[in-house]
Design a protein around this nucleic acid. Structure first.
Lengths: 216, 216, 216, 216
DNA sequence: AATGAATGAGCTTTCATTCAT
DNA sequence: AATGAATGAAAGCTCATTCAT
């Protein structure tokens, strides 16, 4: 029960006082915190259930294993993140406009939710015995989003033809690294201070026209 | 003792008959292989000493902990790597020429030494209970190298003044991501296929003059 | 609810629509199958209620513990078995005739109901923390039946006086072992192939007269 | 360390006082006691190492799993038992003489070592999720010994030809049951009181000649 | 310097049982 | 009567570290 703080406690009905949210949700919520603090290996099931105010039995009733639970968590978080990003991007008329807005949205979201960034980007990489990317759906999704818009930008003549796949990964890597540094060494603070330089540089890297650079 | 096979055993001096290399070295050598295969958490001290042909006692005689041993290994490897890179770069007359050569050298080295890339870039991230950068000296060293040369490029007028610290990290991130994909997904194969696009894009991102871009 | 399929659902009375058999019965039926397949320790309450189409709550409403449930099951099964055996034996005029028929009946029944044999003879032996005979009422009942008829055989002069208690247990052990081998090794197949040799040997072991041996 | 009692303590050297026997041996010794008391499932690794005065780490250093440890124990015990039995039997000139002596030897040994009988005959049957005979090497070995000597008895004309395989299993079952009853209900006491009746009955069951019966 | 048996806290996972509904 | 989410003690097993030799 330790440090679990339900929101809107006052307006809940009597029977909900003990278990304001269902156990599954509370476990996932607790897991974000514990994973952000200790990483995949360091996050013990015991600590997660202690923080969530549930029990090991409940944990394994709702999830078939610790790994599956983290996968569910990462999936949920990255899906939300991508959805929110795509929503913000919807009204932009041009491909480059959409990438730029998308990147800004990503930085802004992470800036507000440090722990989520931690879990999605750091803790679950290279855990345990496997080195695959099963915990990194966001990596693929965001890179693909960038690639598609760069391809569109080529189609509509915003930029010249080039290897968009490789460049999309470079862009993702550049963004990722900036977020990582913010997570680990705390700079820049706030993270969003990096937005302008980051976007300007990325646009230049694909030879976006000066006029576009000025507008952004 | 399993698969450790000293060469040229017969011509070694008496004291070396049992242990042709000193134990410390053999442990570090074995650790590269085991870490590359299983990651930090997955690499057991037992397996490392088995592969090295030494013993647990020897391991803890030479290193105070598994963590310290990996730090020593990563330090040694990243130092060698940076030294080799800087050496290749020495004869380049211009700052941008030096970064370009440095990046090419890095990709070329990793391309030939996959295991080293694994250990330096993947396995030691997000391991265990700590989330700091103690295992990533290369990150800092290579980013600093980039920053210094970008600053030099500004001084000599190759590029306009800009936030070189942030951009150096972006560059590192972009390079890192390309190497990571190569390690995990296997593309591009060989890794060095990415060199030209990568360098061209990076140079463009800092507004390097067209004439320089053509020359490279 | 998985694979439970009531037959003749449509003609059942109203109160039976949901649960064509009462839950207690369905749990016992499911338990036979699960115990035969996985043994006492391996048979989880969860699996039993899944197969029975009931619930944990129902299970513990009808039985105070898993152990008690298995005892009830074994009691029911062994009682039925003994009753069926005694019924088959009723018309035999001589004591030895009755034992012989009883043994034949037992082998024949088990041969047709492998699962019951499994539960009654194997799964409940040496389980968990207890080593007593609480799960083996059949052992006692069948041995007693043998002993009584051997005593009768002595009374009527079919065989010489001897330690019928010990011999009854020997007979039971011999029969039990043959059934066990059939269950585990699958031989003889069918089990009833063993009947003649088994009975002949047992009769000889108490010195039954040749004339009787020939008749049987 | 609990109830471990080394023998011959007084003549041991100083350094042996703490660990009079090696850990592997002490674990096996402790396991006999714990298995005899609680059965396979009920015997926890923790309890075994507590009783043995060792540790879980030591347990898993010497045995790769609890199952393997019990297999090693059962193998060792049954091998010793069979060896001792065969040795006692060596001087008997006739096949039937050898079986009779062997059975007597078995009963006599078990009579003196109740716990070994428990482990070999009861505790490891039907454990866990498997129903195979991996823990019952003695069953096979002793049955085979009986079969071979019965075959020999037929060869030398001591008994008539008959299904020795089936009969060997019957004999084993009869003997097993008598020992089981002694283990569980404590009768007959001592176990060896059963020897004469048991052997006489078994010999009769294969039609051994009266003269032989008298001699035994 | 080197050995490897020994340690024990820690891990993930299971499961008979309980209880609010 | 019935449900099934919740419980928590206990299970088998791992592994970095220690230490007598």
């Amino acid at each position: 029960m330790a440090n679990y703080r339900p929101i809107g406690l006052l307006i809940m009905e009597k029977s909900s006082l003990v278990n304001p949210l269902n156990a599954r949700q509370r476990i996932l919520d607790a897991a974000v915190n514990v994973l952000a603090q200790h990483g995949y290996t360091g996050a013990g099931v015991q600590e997660i259930v202690d923080v969530s105010g549930t029990s090991k039995g409940s944990f394994y009733f709702h999830f078939s294993s610790k790994e599956k639970m983290v996968m569910a968590l990462v999936d949920r978080m990255s899906e939300k993140l991508i959805k929110a990003t795509l929503k913000n991007v919807r009204n932009e008329p041009t491909p480059l406009g959409r990438v730029v807005t998308g990147i800004g949205s990503l930085l802004s979201t992470f800036s507000k939710r440090r722990k989520i960034a931690h879990v999605l980007l750091i803790n679950v990489l290279g855990h345990g015995k496997s080195n695959d990317m099963k915990f990194l759906p966001m990596r693929e999704k965001f890179s693909t989003f960038i690639k598609i818009e760069l391809d569109n930008a080529i189609s509509v003549g915003q930029i010249e033809p080039q290897d968009t796949e490789l460049i999309a990964h470079m862009w993702f890597g550049a963004i990722y690294e900036i977020i990582m540094r913010w997570l680990i060494v705390g700079q820049p603070n706030p993270l969003t201070d990096a937005t302008n330089t980051l976007i300007l540089s990325l646009l230049r890297s694909v030879g976006a026209p000066d006029q576009y650079l000025e507008l952004s």
